[in-house]
């Protein structure tokens, strides 16, 4: 299946992209998808699937949009 990974803020500089599509096995989880992304010494992050927060072990579906963001303080 294909999943779009979007990286927010400085994570994009570390990984070298802000958004890209990756191909995963049909039973892949969020953790499997993130294994494809180099986040360096990233501090705490929050992962959402189609705008809703998910855990690492949650499964994905074809066409999902996975977003990884640092935990911000809100300006």
């Amino acid at each position: 299946m294909k999943v779009t990974v979007r990286l927010i803020g400085p994570l994009a500089y570390t990984a070298g992209f802000s958004e890209k599509e990756i191909t995963l096995a049909a039973s892949a989880t969020a953790a499997d998808a993130l294994a494809h992304v180099h986040l360096g010494k990233a501090r705490q992050t929050i992962v959402t699937r189609n705008g809703r927060a998910i855990a690492d072990h949650d499964g994905l579906e074809d066409g999902d949009r996975l977003t990884v963001s640092p935990v911000y303080s809100g300006g």
Partner: peptide, 10 residues
């Protein structure tokens, strides 16, 4: 940086 995230999570 938080703007893109706010947009993502509505």
């Amino acid at each position: 940086g938080v703007l893109a995230w706010c947009d993502e999570v509505a």
